[in-house]
Amino acid sequence: MIEIDLSKLTFHALQIKNDLQSARDQIVRPILAQAAVLGYCSQDQFALRLGLEEAISNAYKHGNRCEPDRTLRVRWSMDPNVMVICIADDGEGFNPKNVPDPRVRENLEKPSGRGLMLIKAYMTELRFNERGNEICLIKVRKRRPCRTHT
């Protein structure tokens, strides 16, 4: 675990209706744009986009049960070294330890269940609140220059 005290960070915050396109327009795109301005390389931006899209999708579908009258609440703190983005929904929460591993044989060909695993793989760290209805994605900037991809 990395030493980041979330209570010491200054967060921007936004609350939107439970709608994926709104989330993409008002959360994902501005955050990715800010990451680019801060100099995060394309690998980190890919990871951030993937993590955000999956976390928002989970909040929308599982936390908020696709109900349009529910809300998504996002807070974020970004600097050139680390990004912290927290996404909360109105749901009852869940225990991430209870999510089955999609990579084991019996789950490998199931059509769902990979979102959380992918977020974990691409972020430096994840933190959940006690209730389990807020996930914080923490991404520390790669120190080495990023490889270019074809």
Binding site: F46, R49, L50, E53, E54, S57, E109, K110, P111, S112, R114, G115, L118
Partner: peptide, 12 residues
């Protein structure tokens, strides 16, 4: 970019 839902679609 592909989401995990897109992966599920390919499995289906």
């Amino acid at each position: 970019h592909l989401s995990s839902s897109a992966l599920g679609m390919l499995i289906n």
